[in-house]
């Protein structure tokens, strides 16, 4: 069965692009979220195999969403998607339980490699 992935980003553009990369490789998009709070809510409802998480989002940022999701499910697998200039936050995300990160602009091969690794580990 295809792995189900939840995509969290406040830009529809980014969500579409990530969804295209993932579905092109045979993954299933379980759902999308446009803010950190929504991400937590969707995670609970959808129980996805993996979450891709933007960092800068309204309501509640990606870092806090990672903490909340890990608190709900310590086994949650989260992949951070950050733009340039967010290194410090990426480190914080990893310390909070995120598995890995990719940097925008996305290279499909790099994204898929990270997804595969996060799902395998």
């Amino acid at each position: 069965m295809a792995h189900r992935i939840l995509i969290c980003d406040d830009a529809i553009f980014m969500r579409t692009m990530i969804a295209d990369i993932l579905t092109g490789a045979g993954y299933e998009v379980a759902g999308e979220a446009g803010s950190g709070l929504q991400a937590v809510e969707r995670y609970k409802a959808l129980k996805p195999d993996l979450v891709t998480m933007d960092i800068v989002m309204p309501d509640m940022g990606g870092i806090d969403a990672v903490k909340a999701i890990i608190a709900l499910d310590p086994a949650a697998r989260i992949l951070m998607c950050s733009a340039m200039g967010q290194q410090q936050l990426v480190v914080e995300a990893i310390q909070s339980g995120a598995k890995d990160f990719v940097v925008k602009p996305f290279q499909p091969a790099r994204v898929l490699e990270a997804v595969q690794r996060a799902l395998g580990g």
Binding site: D10, A11, F13, M14, V56, M57, P58, A83, K104, P105
Partner: peptide, 16 residues
């Protein structure tokens, strides 16, 4: 404004 610029940056970079 920061969030808006940040998002535009990410999108623009993705489209080169």
């Amino acid at each position: 404004i920061f969030r808006a610029l940040h998002t535009i940056k990410g999108m623009a970079a993705s489209l080169e």
